[in-house]
Amino acid sequence: MNSLLSIKDLHVSFGLGLETVDAVRGINLEIARGEIVGIVGESGSGKSASMLSVMRLLATTATTRGTVHFAGKELFSASSKEMRGIRGGKIGMIFQDPMTSLNPSFRIGSQIAEAIIRHQHVSTKIAVSKATDLLEVVSIPRPSESMSLFPHEMSGGMKQRVMIAMAIANDPELLIADEPTTALDVTIQAQILEVLKGLRETRNLSIVIITHDLGVVAGLADSVNVMYAGEIVESGDVEGVFYKATHPYSRGLLSCVPRLDIRESALHPIGGDPPKLSEKTPGCSFQPRCKNAIDLCETTSPTLRSSTVTGLKVSCHNPMEPSPQMSESI
């Protein structure tokens, strides 16, 4: 087994007053070195919660179950001291909103240097020169002058690059990017994705990218996991999921994306609402919204298995036919 991160049967639930919300309901995920894995799903599907639990960054109201092995080490049983060494050292993380993720009262140079000094125990001088190199890596113009800027003097895209620089400052093996481009406009988004891609190539970095933007995943990831209501409903390599998805929810997601190349103006929103995560139903969690639902879906919850037709893993009793039209048109 040479996967870098291995998540087995992960459950995350939040106590919310009297009820518990099961945000993640038993997911399994393997990430190899140098692999970019996308996790897509709508808001509240548990994609952020599952990755935050890997970093053990969840609020204290959350309880987790399952195991997470990172480079052979089990993280849920690690001490908080070991976790601090792993956070920022072995695993870097980028957050959704670069506007608020930097400390407004320090210059960005010292913030990056702080991350370096914390893990590498080098002198300030060396840390500063390393930080300057990092700014160059994430393509910030005039790195040495930019070191002394305050966060409010930079644009959103620049700040996100600084966040990436901080996240990779200690040569992590894994980078978790939680909606890294959501707060940015499309041109900046493309640049940030380029930076991430470059990092994979130069440093053999594994990246988990959490997003609801299928375009981001299509351009970046090697494999994709589609999450719905805390479960992975379909997973496989990126081409497969985009061209041959058979789970009704994945298909629904794909048809929600506006397309310019097909002369059909209507989008196809998925009807209904996501289920309440505090309620447990015996059947498939997507069943109430599913057009393909059969009787079995109401009573038995499907499990994730490999489909012989598409080579993807899908969790559905009555998967759709792989759409020939889709594979032609994309």
Binding site: L57, R87, G88, F95, S101, L102, N103, E114, A115, R118
Partner: peptide
């Protein structure tokens, strides 16, 4: 509760350091 504190935790800063450098100045 602010995100830059979460970001500081995510780079592995100690609680003491976060309190000193990322919370108290503000």
């Amino acid at each position: 509760q602010r995100e830059h504190v979460e970001a500081a935790i995510s780079i592995g800063a100690t609680r003491r350091r976060i309190l000193q450098k990322h919370v108290m100045p503000m």
